[in-house]
Design a protein around this nucleic acid. Structure first.
Length: 277
DNA sequence: AACTGTGCCAACCGCGCACCT
DNA sequence: GAGGTGCGCGGTTGGCACAGT
């Protein structure tokens, strides 16, 4: 083989060595650890220095969208939705600009949210999705303030009413996937056995670092129902604000028992990371 | 139980801009 | 000014979960 051929071979090997797809817990730890020590930026060299077989772009995306300490997850509130509609009417698909007014949210999240739920709402309300202001009015009108200030993240109709006998099931069905995964015991999230359902086809254990911990708040006023008793925890306490989930409102039992003690969340990882440091 | 359709979202891709040499 | 590199943005895709049949 000539020199040129050898170079090509090396290039192919390097490309083949690059990992793609879902991030593992080890990779997340490595990335978080490195950024904690050295800061972000220079993503390509960062990826190499951190020992990650990922592109710089991939590392940046992972950090900005999921590992960053101030990333807020959970359902989009009605207020946020209305704000998104307002900002979208102003700037269109300028997601990066829109998320500047939604602290803790990521452009990817808002973009996905828009594509899936807002466009669905527009269809259901027979409203042009481009007419964001009109859509905002209709969504606001369609929402029932006595029920919740939250637009539920459901797979069915956004305003469907869950029957009492279905509550237990519905509460889990309507939970965001990330929240649903919190039901898994920590053992299922370890590297040995963490071929989670999400990653059934993957050979690598998938990180659940992006999952958040929702703590039950005893101050929840069930009679009122306008404020739900779940406090979202973010690593390092960046956020500590109430979230209102309609599904939780209907049934707050899903977070009962030993669940809270067995969660493997970002906070755990940050703690672990501090120990490693 | 098996299959199909739908919803959702993490991750990737391509492009363009800014900066540096 | 040209070329290379890093980065950010918007669009798209792949695949899992779940509901319905």
């Amino acid at each position: 083989m000539n020199v040129k051929g050898e170079e090509n071979h090396e290039e192919i090997v390097m490309i083949e060595e690059l990992r793609r797809g879902p991030w593992t817990m080890e990779e997340d730890l490595a990335l978080m650890n490195y950024i904690t020590l050295h800061g972000e930026g220079r993503w390509n060299s960062l990826a190499c220095s951190a020992g990650l077989k990922r592109t710089g772009k991939s590392c940046r995306l992972r950090w900005l969208n999921y590992l960053r300490p101030d990333v807020r997850r959970g359902n989009i509130t009605l207020d946020e939705q209305l704000l998104i509609l307002e900002l979208h009417s102003r700037w269109g698909n300028r997601w990066s600009k829109i998320v500047q007014h939604l602290p803790g949210r990521t452009d990817n999240e808002i973009k996905n949210y828009w594509r899936t739920r807002v466009q669905k709402h527009a269809k259901q309300l027979k409203c042009d999705v481009k007419n964001s202001k009109e859509l905002a009015k209709r969504i606001q009108a369609a929402s029932t303030p006595t029920v919740s200030s939250e637009i539920p993240n459901t797979k069915g109709s956004p305003h469907q009413v869950t029957m009492p006998q279905e509550q237990a099931q519905a509460s889990s069905d309507t939970m965001p996937n990330s929240v649903q995964q919190l039901h898994k015991p920590i053992s299922s999230l370890t590297s040995e056995s963490s071929n989670t359902t999400r990653s059934a086809s993957s050979n690598s254990p998938i990180s659940d670092l992006t999952d958040y911990c929702y703590n039950y708040d005893p101050n929840y006023d069930q009679a009122n129902g306008t404020q739900l008793g779940f406090t979202e925890c973010c690593p390092s306490g960046y956020y500590n604000q109430h979230l209102s989930f309609q599904e939780m409102e209907q049934n707050n039992q899903w977070m009962s028992g030993d669940l809270a003690e067995t969660l493997w969340n970002v906070e755990d990882i940050w703690s672990l990371q501090q120990l490693l440091n």
